[in-house]
Design a protein around this nucleic acid. Structure first.
Lengths: 340, 340
DNA sequence: GCGAGCCGTGTAACCGTTTACACGGGATCA
DNA sequence: TGATCCCGTGTAAACGGTTACACGGCTCGC
């Protein structure tokens, strides 16, 4: 009996129609408008579908409906809790809209981002989510030419070329600095990730410098990893003036800094204070519990999902959205020189 | 001039062809076989493409080529470093093959997995990656009927219904237990994640019980989070016989356990030993550095990508692959009662 | 008993590509 | 000069669905 098992070709609507002695239209209706065809015809069709192991072809369906139901997300990496949490929120909410998420990592490289954006469009993404507001001109050309909805996350900017859904990176950094300054710290080491291609980092650093608070700020750039934080802490401690506080622009870096300080016998916050940025779930449990600036990344994922979903469905771009940040004060910060 | 800007409809090949006074075939060739059409014709076509902002329709292309270049992955969550790292490895390697990754989270629920699997197939996934070897019958029906390549990860099983790429979960748990037992521990608390629907966890626990080493094993189930680990540690310590070691089936749980022990004033490993499972990058930097069993998740992502890519390209299913696990001994384990 | 209306089903056009095949014209060769 | 070949290009048939429209048969009302 041909067509039941083991044949090369995947069965299509026509095969099902033939096997159940109806037209392709009827089969299509059984699948898409179940109430339209009932009784024995319906039974026959369903039986044929089952026997043939028929499954509708996504591309053919997409070409007719004009929709792929695919949203693409471009993130620097998945190997960083901040983006993974964001994507978790994004994917869950997109699923509520019946949209699927295709993920591409860029390694924070604008050219790679452009290449991957093209790949996302090639698989039919109806909308794109990107991180930050620094992009290759090729990326801008590509997306504007194709008139594809793009939402930028991680940084709020009221009139960027794409609608943004993010927080105020300047304010988030200032929150940490003001906290430390308020405690009395004047010699502060800033530990940050790579500045190259990362607008959030650059914005935060410039915000800190522009505050012009009395005292000195010294920057140390580090690879974003616990080890990177360790090494940066070592370098900062080797300077002529030892800082009384470390302001880290990532919780991962702060975790490394805490570790290195502990290893070298410093008491945090008695000898040195440390702040993070992001407020990862684990930051409450490092020792000592990390003072950090909470960035609502999971919520950002949810909001980004809603924004892009409405956009691709209604054609109406979303309004930019600023998400609140807040300082979460824990045990890793205190006044400098508490003994004097 | 109609068709240049602001028209509703997205331009298609025909529009480009009309505008450059060539046939659709020529336009298609400019895009797909650049060397076939050169000179002024080529220029005209490229100009028209540019002016119209033409971008090829993914679905139409897919229907002809018979390929979508999409691979779907089903993972319990993205909000856990172990899966995020896996996906990072997977996505990077898939990109080398020109394949895109669509991600769906299941919350460790087989029914949700089935629903999401259907969604992945509806967007045209050519192959699927799933976690573990516990799946709803609906999932099995769906995937076998549609004859779609499926690779199961996280657990090696020589002749599962799908090819597996993973490690030996029994052996990984035994490694930890043998280590503790070799140090002299007899009263051991096992801290594990939810057993329900999680075959890896169940396999590990049964492996530990089946070893039948002298001494007692007490299980505590916890939600997989640092806080979950804290609470489980509290419960284990409240028992009549206080364990001399905690064997945690996840580094995240172990981190919580370490935190709770420290909070309660226990000295690790002098008073109590702790082991983890996974060996996350951060585990080297918790205090004290965590003894753990290294699971090669990033490598698993790479291998899974290669396996599914070859499968969808050649039609040949991959051989199951067992990845090595190893005990990484650090400072969180030592002999019990070192004083006596 | 006959026309209207409805319901279930079929026919065929269409979606936007790719590509086998056909075709026409210029260069090459005898 | 005419046959041959090649190259660039066009025509049209797929691909696998959805759906507007047509159509035939049934029920119903007058």
């Amino acid at each position: 009996m041909p067509g039941i098992r083991g044949d090369r070709k995947r069965p299509n609507l026509r095969d099902v129609a033939r096997r159940s002695n109806v037209s392709v239209a009827t089969v299509s209706r059984v699948l898409n408008a179940p109430s339209m065809v009932l009784g024995p015809t319906r039974e026959r069709v369903l039986a044929a579908i089952d026997e043939l192991g028929y499954f509708p072809n996504a591309a053919a369906r997409a070409i007719n409906l004009g929709r792929t139901r695919i949203i693409g997300a471009l993130v620097p990496t998945l190997d960083n809790a901040i983006f993974a949490r964001f994507l978790d929120g994004l994917e869950n909410r997109l699923a509520d809209y019946g949209l699927s998420l295709v993920v591409a990592t860029t390694g924070e490289d604008p050219d790679a981002e452009t290449v991957k954006a093209r790949a996302l469009m090639n698989v039919g993404a109806e909308g794109l989510i990107v991180s930050g507001i620094t992009h290759a001109s090729g990326f801008l050309d590509l997306t504007t030419n194709a008139r594809i909805p793009v939402v930028a996350i991680s940084h709020f900017h009221a009139d960027y070329v794409f609608p943004t859904i993010g927080y105020d990176n300047r304010a988030s950094a200032e929150l940490a600095l003001r906290h430390l300054h308020g405690l009395g710290h004047r010699d502060i080491a800033i530990i940050h990730g790579p500045k190259r291609h990362n607008d959030r980092t650059r914005l935060r650093i410039s915000a800190l410098e522009n505050l012009r608070l009395p005292g000195s700020l010294e920057c140390q750039e580090a690879e974003i990893s616990i080890e990177g934080g360790c090494r940066a802490a070592g370098r900062a401690l080797a300077r002529a003036v030892r800082p009384t506080a470390f302001l880290c622009l990532s919780d991962v870096l702060a975790t490394g800094v805490l570790y290195e300080l502990q290893r070298r016998g410093f008491d945090v916050p008695r000898d040195i204070s440390v702040t993070g940025m992001e407020d990862l779930p684990s930051s409450e449990f490092v020792f000592p519990a990390l003072t950090s600036v909470r960035l609502p990344v999971a919520d950002m994922g949810t909001r980004a999902a809603e924004a892009i979903a409405n956009w691709v469905e209604s054609g109406q771009p979303p309004d930019p959205l600023k998400l609140p940040v807040e300082l979460v004060s824990r045990s890793s910060t205190g006044p400098p020189f508490p003994d004097r």
